[in-house]
Simulated assay, not measured.
Amino acid sequence: MNQEYEPEATRRHASATESSQASRGWWDRNADDYQSEHGAFLGDDRFIWGPEGLDEERAGLLGPAEGLKGRRILEIGAGAAQCARWLAAQGARPVALDLSHRQLQHALRIGDGADGAAAGGAVDLVEADAGALPFRDGAFDMACSAYGAIPFVADPVRVLREVRRVLRPGGRFVFSVTHPIRWAFPDDPGPEGLSVAASYFDRTPYVEQDESGHAVYVEHHRTVGDRVRDVVAAGFRLVDLVEPEWPDENTQEWGGWSPLRGYLIPGTAIFVCVAE
């Protein structure tokens, strides 16, 4: 692809294979910039659910912190494994999985650059696709995903079923995604982003493609109802749906997320599920 070419943004069908290839390539190319821009906000060993800054230490969506000790926990779409490091600091035994080799290199960098206590202790890293988890049935007590994998896959039920497969019965899975209502608004943190510009019910994926028409970034839209049905179809029971409010102390903008928009409409949806 010509380095000077700006990808074209469009809405079109994107298959599971095309979506996976685009995600791997995009995150490998952009991991350095992502960690440089957002690393301070994410921290080395914090568990942040989204741009609002809601952290697991305060929210307790996986359960009381003391109950995490000794638990085998899978983080999906882990990036640089910041969340997994926090889990390790609570005494859990986390595995951080990501599709991007470069993101996992940042996980190694952070882990090597701090002592075990500061960085959250040892974390196992696995490079794999969330739609084909390389683990035996019932291998984990819990699973989590903070904006990882699920928004970028064409078949979310496949991923959810894989998560259900590797969880023991009664295991908890908590994942966050862009709040579906945001798809009706422009991805703009300012006043332009406050007016509805598209149909909430249009599930056509958002695609950025190169000059040859190959997808270099893909994000898939599901309505709230779709997400709930996906969870149930995969064998989970939905026990909570959390929509974090924008806190006064968070003054930063992150892409289309901002205090201006965050005070008015939700930016993140967190699904708390239990394996049946």
Rank of each mutant, 00 (worst) to 15 (best):
N2R: 13
Q3P: 10
Y5M: 12
A9V: 14
A14V: 00
A14W: 10
A14C: 09
A22M: 10
R24A: 14
W26N: 03
W26V: 02
S36D: 15
L42K: 08
G50F: 07
P51Q: 09
G53F: 11
D55V: 05
E56L: 15
E57W: 07
L61S: 07
L68W: 12
R71Q: 12
A78W: 06
A81Q: 09
A81G: 07
Q82H: 10
C83H: 15
S100A: 02
R102A: 14
Q105D: 14
L108D: 14
G113F: 02
G121Y: 11
L133Q: 00
P134L: 00
D137R: 07
D141Y: 01
G148S: 01
A149K: 00
P156N: 01
F173M: 04
V177A: 13
H179R: 13
P189L: 04
P191V: 14
S195Q: 11
V196C: 02
A198M: 12
R203K: 08
T204R: 10
Y206Q: 15
Q209T: 10
E211Q: 10
S212M: 12
G225N: 12
D226G: 00
D230L: 08
V239L: 06
G256A: 12
L264M: 10
I265W: 07
P266A: 06
G267Q: 06
A269I: 15
A269C: 15
V272A: 11
C273N: 14
